[in-house]
Amino acid sequence: MKGLPPALRKKKRYVAFKIVSNRSNRGDSSPSVSESSGSENAGSDIARNLWHELWQNVLSLYGEWYGNVGLRIEYFDEKSMEGIIRCSRDRVEFVIAALTFVTELGNERVAVKTLGVSGTIKGCRRFLSLTSESVKK
């Protein structure tokens, strides 16, 4: 619903994460950097796969009743394999659990490590290893 006063708007949280795979452990990663402005037009395959896998996990773990976690990939950097996910404040732990259960992206085995949770993207930047300027505001 649009036009809600601030007090009635859904509170958000931002979760910084990192995708760890055997490929990233060996030190080779894709050189291209892409930014995804949201789940619908996620800029990279990895971000799109992650978003899909996350939704699968959320729906299989919590079902349609509790599944409304307000998920959105705010930012993803393919070079460092780090990113920021937005979700609703009441469901942060649900999203972290769903991230924990991500074991495969595409055909590659991965693990998703949560780096930290913050109320703003700016606050979330300090968990990421990349420069703060590259994170979309």
Partner: peptide, 17 residues
């Protein structure tokens, strides 16, 4: 294997839930 490891914060958060 290595990819089944999870940081403590993440692990404890899941089990607390």
């Amino acid at each position: 294997n290595e990819l089944e490891l999870r940081p403590r914060y993440q692990l404890y958060s899941f089990f607390s839930l």
